[in-house]
């Protein structure tokens, strides 16, 4: 962005005259749509969250009751807890594997890197409902491939999707399968930004691969890792499609994330005030997390 710095302040450089009103052509379509479909909904939700409203008739002012209700609503708290558990699980599986894949495809000695990279990344372009369908079949209790393979190592048929703990694990695995390639790409970019000299110097000093990993690679990737952590957190908190398809939020609500609970309260139950309060809480939370990304991203370079 060197040009930006080189650009002179208006007034110091003579610009050829042009019709200033034509700027409106560029700005107005975006601004109108943006105000109606992005900014207005935020204000709408903010106002509605302080009211009780079933979708018809006058709004009933209730102050912050919708917010306090959420924290005393067992189903609401459960959905928040589920989201956190599922997010942590997804990241615990996906981030280390994504890092490992990045190390693999960044290794000079690996032939046909392009093929590996492509295959590792492809699940990312698969629609979430498709991923859900495939894993529903793989996790099928009696005839599923996963239980078939596990039977060979002496593990009895696991009731995936029927028991809360296993259902959660199934959701985590499905989501991480889709997300790994994404994490990998970020780590690959991070790895490629480490100067080769560091490794060469340490080679001369007689460092082995593991030492290089611990003392060079990992510290140099601190910033990228944080970025990956933030971006996957934001993604994981929007969890909806996979459990909606695979389990419908069950068994015993164990895979009902906040998004699903919010949409159930709002669209299905018509408690728009309450659902708006959840929407605002979630927006605020994710905006703060994403803002960290600007803070740390901004310091780079």
């Amino acid at each position: 962005m060197g040009l930006f710095n080189a650009k002179l302040k208006p007034g110091r450089k003579k610009y050829y005259p042009y019709n200033r009103y034509s700027i409106l052509i560029f700005v107005l379509p975006f601004v109108i749509l943006y105000l109606v479909f992005r900014i207005w909904p935020i204000l709408y939700a903010g106002a509605l969250s302080l009211h009780e409203w079933q979708g018809l008739g006058p709004w009933n002012f209730v102050g912050f009751q919708n917010y306090t209700d959420f924290f005393s609503d067992p189903a609401g708290v459960l959905s928040a807890g589920n989201t956190i558990i599922l997010a942590i699980g997804e990241m615990a599986i996906g981030i280390p594997l994504g890092f490992m894949f990045a190390l693999l495809i960044n290794n000079r000695r690996l032939p046909m890197k392009g093929v590996f990279r492509t295959i590792y990344f492809i699940p990312r372009v698969v629609a979430l409902p498709v991923g859900a369908i495939i894993f529903m079949a793989l996790f099928q209790r009696q005839y599923g491939v996963v239980n078939y393979v596990l039977a060979h190592v002496g593990i009895e048929a696991i009731p995936w999707l029927r028991e809360p703990g296993w259902a959660r694990l199934a959701v985590m695995i499905t989501r991480s399968w889709i997300g790994i390639g994404f994490t990998m790409i970020y780590f690959t970019a991070g790895l490629q930004s480490i100067p080769v000299d560091f490794y060469e110097a340490s080679d001369i000093d007689g460092a082995n691969g593991l030492q290089q990993l611990i003392y060079i690679t990992l510290p140099m990737l601190r910033r990228v890792s944080l970025f990956v952590l933030i971006i996957t957190t934001v993604g994981a908190f929007q969890l909806f499609a996979v459990p909606y398809m695979m389990t419908g939020g069950g068994p015993r609500r164990a895979t009902t994330p906040v998004m699903m609970y919010m949409l159930n309260r709002g669209i299905s139950a018509g408690q728009y005030g309450y659902a708006s309060a959840i929407s605002i809480l979630l927006s605020a939370f994710l905006a703060v997390i994403a803002a960290l990304q600007f803070r740390f991203g901004g310091r780079e370079r």
Binding site: I42, A45, Q238, M259, Y272, S279
Partner: peptide, 10 residues
């Protein structure tokens, strides 16, 4: 900063 999905109710 705010993922659009979160705003689907409003």
């Amino acid at each position: 900063l705010i993922p659009i999905q979160v705003l689907f109710i409003p």
